[in-house]
Nucleic acid binder design. Structure first.
Lengths: 209, 209
DNA sequence: AAATGATTTAATCATTTGTTTAAATCAAAA
DNA sequence: TTTTGATTTAAACAAATGATTAAATCATTT
């Protein structure tokens, strides 16, 4: 009995296919990517794709699930902590997200698209800890209406702003760069600046709304 | 000599095709939409599509161009005005954008996607007045570093925040709605709230950055 | 009414695309 | 070495897809 017989020295085909698929799917979306393209990018034969993953759709499902997890997992760990204040959580979330997005710049658009065309399936891609954390955070936001004079900002605005300020520049990077004449290096610097800036903005936003 | 012989009473085929194409393209993107689908949605024969517009790609080009113009035109008119302050311009822009996006909720994702995969073509879809206006506004932003104590916020941040706060909720609407249990009606109300809120947030952001 | 030219249709073509099949190749076990 | 089972390949299939063709239909002009 053998578990695995690695034939090629470099990297086994399964991993190469997944890597190629992830790159292409996140870049161009499901429909625009052809199976032959994935095979070529992976440097393997077309039939291998269906041998390892039963179909294009199955392969996509896997990529999608992993991307989603990567997207959610950045938060779930630290967000369950009861002792952290909302502001501290925002700091941690923004920091961790921007770091992750600098490595995976086209994750936002990919996920926005996929969920946009399949809103129902969102729940399936999320594990329970993630859901629990989200509930907790929203609860914490709602019950945070403490000693403020003015009425509390709707938690939708707070979530939308936090996520929007963090994620949007990545989704719009090509436009922004082209439109404002900024190259990839400057972009990275600016995004790193935002790790500190966004929490400040969020704070003043929540205080004098 | 005839200009046009409108056969069908309701609406001529050309317009119906364009309308169907716009709906489907903006919903699912170029590759995911099939010519037969457009024909069915428009309630016409497949060959008509190629009769009026030479090909799927040509049809898409038209939809894309019109969408882009719709997106840019909201701004170009009022933004050339020298006498308006930056803050007043922000108020006008946010107001006008949100109004337009409530009518066309999937325009943002559509444009982000298309430009994301074809950054070079961005310039072609923009007319000169639009470019002029953009230059002017950025110039106004840069030279606005007046009497502030702290150093001025990079204009990239200002643009990114203004556009992000305005547009992102629409791009992420399906996720947000699903995740936070908000229906379309509430969503519209919240977006309308943001017409007033975003300019306030932008102000405090630019003052104590 | 007949002619004209625009509009619309059904049928077909050629290519692309996802998937399958049957055979070849290779590494490890017997 | 031979066998065994996993891995890889070339070739082919069936359906989907963008586009074309040739004929039919309709509204208007003559």
């Amino acid at each position: 009995m053998k578990k695995k017989t690695t034939r090629s020295i470099d990297q086994n085909a399964e991993a190469k296919i997944k890597e190629a698929a992830r790159k292409l799917f996140t870049q161009k979306g499901y429909a625009a990517v052809k199976t032959r393209e994935i095979a070529a990018e992976a440097g393997i034969n077309l039939a291998l794709l269906n041998y390892y993953f039963r179909s294009k759709e199955k392969l996509f499902e896997i990529i999608m699930m992993e991307s989603m997890q990567q997207f959610m997992q950045s938060i779930s760990i630290l967000f369950l902590d009861e002792k952290l204040s909302v502001h501290r959580k925002i700091e941690l979330l923004v920091e961790s997200y921007i770091t992750m997005l600098l490595e995976n710049p086209n994750l936002p658009l990919f996920i926005l698209n996929e969920i946009g065309s399949n809103p129902k399936k969102l729940g399936e891609h999320m594990d329970n800890p993630t859901k629990a954390m989200r509930e907790k955070f929203i609860g914490q936001l709602k019950s945070n209406a403490g000693g403020n004079k003015k009425q509390q900002l709707h938690y939708f605005h707070i979530m939308a702003n936090m996520i929007g300020l963090t994620i949007f520049p990545f989704a719009a990077a090509p436009i922004m760069q082209q439109l404002m004449g900024i190259d990839k290096k400057e972009f990275a610097v600016l995004m790193t600046e935002r790790k500190k800036l966004i929490p400040l903005w969020m704070k003043s936003m929540m205080e004098n709304s």
